[in-house]
Simulated assay, not measured.
Amino acid sequence: MYEASVQDDLYQLYALQKCEHFSQWQEVITGINFKNIGRAKKYEGSEQKKDAVKSGRDRKRTRS
């Protein structure tokens, strides 16, 4: 489902690794266009996992 988007992002990162000079890096980085991975409107997974993620987010927010 996300494979094509992730693969494209990976190719763009590989292109950055190949740069040897700042001018090459600047050209490549301005052309990066990371893909937006869509989200399902309705969650269809485990309610326990969903609640665990929400709980973790809430704990992180209270610590910040």
Score class of each variant (00 low, 15 high):
M1G: 06
M1W: 04
Y2K: 14
Y2R: 15
Y2V: 12
Y2A: 11
E3N: 11
A4D: 11
S5E: 09
S5D: 11
V6T: 08
V6C: 07
V6R: 03
Q7L: 06
Q7K: 10
D8R: 07
D8V: 05
D9E: 12
D9Q: 02
D9R: 01
L10D: 10
Y11E: 14
Q12M: 02
L13Q: 10
L13S: 06
A15T: 07
A15N: 04
L16T: 06
L16Q: 06
Q17D: 08
K18W: 03
K18S: 07
C19A: 09
C19D: 00
C19G: 01
E20A: 14
E20S: 11
E20L: 14
H21M: 12
H21V: 15
F22A: 10
F22S: 08
F22N: 10
S23I: 13
Q24H: 12
Q24F: 04
W25E: 00
W25L: 10
Q26G: 05
Q26M: 13
Q26Y: 13
E27H: 15
E27C: 11
V28S: 01
I29E: 13
I29H: 11
I29R: 14
T30S: 07
T30P: 00
G31P: 00
G31R: 02
I32M: 10
I32K: 02
I32A: 03
N33H: 11
N33L: 08
N33P: 01
F34G: 02
F34N: 04
K35T: 13
I37R: 09
I37G: 00
G38I: 03
G38H: 02
G38D: 06
G38Q: 06
R39T: 08
R39I: 07
R39K: 14
A40H: 10
A40N: 11
K41W: 02
K41E: 15
K41L: 07
K41T: 09
K42C: 07
K42W: 08
K42S: 08
K42E: 12
Y43R: 03
Y43C: 08
E44V: 05
G45L: 01
S46Y: 04
E47R: 11
E47G: 04
E47F: 09
Q48A: 15
Q48G: 09
K49G: 01
K49F: 09
K50Q: 07
K50I: 02
K50F: 04
D51E: 14
D51Y: 04
A52P: 00
A52M: 05
A52C: 03
V53A: 03
V53R: 03
V53H: 02
K54A: 05
S55P: 00
S55Q: 15
S55A: 15
S55M: 09
S55T: 10
G56K: 03
R57L: 09
D58P: 00
D58K: 09
D58V: 04
R59W: 05
R59K: 15
R59C: 05
K60Q: 10
K60Y: 08
R61Y: 06
R61F: 05
T62D: 12
R63W: 08
S64F: 13
